[in-house]
Simulated assay, not measured.
Amino acid sequence: MSSSVRVAVDKDTGVAVVSLDRPEKLNAIDLAMAEELAAVWRAFRFDDSVRAVVLTGAGERAFCTGIDRDAVVPQPPSPYMVDDPLLRVGPKANDLWKPVVAAVQGLACGGAFYLLGESEFVVADTTAAFFDPHTPYGMVSAYESVLMAHRMPYGEVARMMLMGTAERISARRAHEIGLVSELTAPGEALGAALHCAAVIAGYPAQGVQGTVRALWAAKEAGRAPAFAQAPHLIALGNLPAERQAELFAARRPGAFRVR
């Protein structure tokens, strides 16, 4: 069985590159990829040769477009429980406290925010675009909104989540509001992220990892109670799956503006 996640480790620099490798699906995350990502993060916990990580997506069209629409995720028959396979795809969810730098080109939307939200910072090229597709299809943007509310000003994340597929945030705008820390020319985001990761990997690991943990602790205080509400909001607010599918099938490709 072929892997949907590629990992390359440079033993000289201490930097690992993790690539989402489903370019034909715009690097959408299916259940197999979700399991692979969790396994990669957990394996890095035991590998001292990896001191920093760059996370990127294969191909030029997308970093990641979230959950694969063809993935079948059975849900418990209770409003108090929701199974979300994306909750375990990020490094922090798998107890990895080594720094992760995201390198983004092309689309990053929906479930991609689980990964961006658990990265230390984001480097993007000018082809990058960010949006959230939940609300137009009768779905609550819960976990994604919480994660992005810790990376963007409230008004910006509210606009992105509520405008849905009608609007995309350009790489330039994402840089202006702080979602992206460095903006590069097309095709240069990976190189810039690798440079940052190599610098960080050259520092003593204990200090770096402790700083990562401290930074995340500053976010956890607000994230934990918000995440606790998410399953109930999703259960109450989501349209039935068949109705979501109808809206998705009736979507109008290209009907959006970039700002």
Rank of each mutant, 00 (worst) to 15 (best):
P76H: 10
L116W: 05
L55Y: 03
P225E: 01
P136K: 00
N94M: 05
V54H: 11
A43G: 10
G202N: 01
Q105V: 00
A230T: 05
A241I: 01
V140H: 08
L107D: 06
S170E: 05
L215H: 13
I200R: 04
A228C: 02
P74H: 10
A32P: 03
G59F: 00
A198Q: 06
T135L: 08
R168S: 14
R172L: 12
S49L: 05
I169C: 09
F113A: 10
D30T: 03
G254R: 10
A39N: 12
L194P: 01
E60V: 11
A32V: 03
P85M: 12
F248R: 14
N238P: 05
R88N: 03
S78L: 09
A112P: 13
A112N: 12
G138L: 00
S4G: 14
S49C: 03
G222R: 06
A129D: 04
A205P: 04
W97K: 07
G207I: 10
S49M: 09
M163I: 02
L179M: 05
I177T: 14
A58D: 13
A28S: 07
A93R: 05
I177Y: 14
N94G: 06
R22C: 10
S49G: 07
G106R: 03
G66I: 04
T126A: 14
R168A: 07
V146W: 02
L233T: 01
G111E: 01
Y203A: 15
E167D: 01
H195E: 11
V82S: 08
A189E: 02
R69H: 15
E120T: 08
R88F: 08
N94Q: 11
L37E: 05
A52Y: 04
P99S: 13
A28H: 10
G155Y: 10
V212H: 10
V40R: 02
L86D: 04
I169D: 06
F130Y: 07
V199L: 07
R168I: 09
R69I: 15
R252T: 15
P136Q: 00
A250C: 09
D10C: 12
A171Q: 08
T165N: 04
E118M: 04
V5N: 01
V17E: 15
L26K: 11
N238F: 05
L215N: 15
L107M: 14
A192N: 02
G110N: 15
R61K: 11
R168C: 07
